[in-house]
Nucleic acid binder design. Structure first.
Lengths: 137, 137
DNA sequence: ATTCATGCAAACGATTTGCACTGAA
DNA sequence: TTCAGTGCAAATCGTTTGCATGAAT
């Protein structure tokens, strides 16, 4: 039935309540789908689920290791997580509002590959974050 | 005489021993000039200078605020600092050796500006880090 | 005397870990 | 009955802060 069960099994994780709950929260995060561990924890409490913060961290780390979610280290100390399913994109973070905008640019993606190769490397992962502020209107 | 004194005064920082010592360490870091606060602290101890770790953090933060050094948040929790004097560049971090390679790509720089503008923003700062591994040889 | 800079230790926030407990296979 | 998964509290790590002392103006 619920597809998340399949997703979890597929990556070798036993289907447990906390894992399913957290998976759903990540999957259904509409507005801003970049959630910190704390965010996930609060959402769990809000919906009446009693999951420990430590478990949230453990599960998120497992999801990351399994490739289900991506962990980003924006400035400000804490990490944010998002479903990995969607296609790759980079981030623009507004320094005034904290808003996060996603974008992709093929030209940049290609240059990156090229640069790495020129130096004798291949890219394992990359992080491009633009810290921006609204244009004077 | 020593130019760092001028540099410090220029940015409105009183010339004190800890500040000069730390400035020199940053400036003379050859091999890898991306140093964590801890790295700087250890170098101070090695050369027999008794500066508190808290002071290292305070001074690095002041230097950053003054635009003398740049702070980068590579993955792994801790921040690294480098002299800002040199021109802008991005980073490639080898996931196997931890080596840090710097690079600049005008095409990428331009695209970034363009993308931000298209979304109604201007770039305040940006962070591009490629996590790489050596090509199979 | 007033102000700024420092060292030390305590405080911090995010994340991790030790451990005893529970529940499923 | 075995063992992964969990909650809770304590521990850890990088970094910041409060406070009292010390140097410079």
């Amino acid at each position: 039935m619920s597809s998340e069960n399949a997703e979890l099994r597929k990556v070798g994780l036993k289907v447990t309540l906390p894992r399913v709950k957290i998976f759903n929260i990540l999957e259904n995060a509409e507005e801003d789908h970049h959630l910190s561990a704390e965010d996930v924890y609060k959402k769990l409490l809000e919906q009446g689920d009693d999951v420990g913060l430590a478990t949230v961290y453990r599960v998120l780390t497992q999801f990351e290791a399994a490739g289900l979610v991506l962990r980003h280290n924006f400035e400000g100390g804490h990490a944010v997580f998002e479903m990995a399913g969607d296609d790759h994109h980079d981030h623009m973070v507004c320094t005034q509002t904290g808003e996060v905008i996603e974008f992709v640019d093929e030209v940049i993606e290609e240059r990156q590959q090229k640069i790495a190769k020129e130096h004798g490397y291949e890219i394992v992962d990359h992080s491009l974050i633009l810290y921006v502020k609204p244009l004077k209107s």
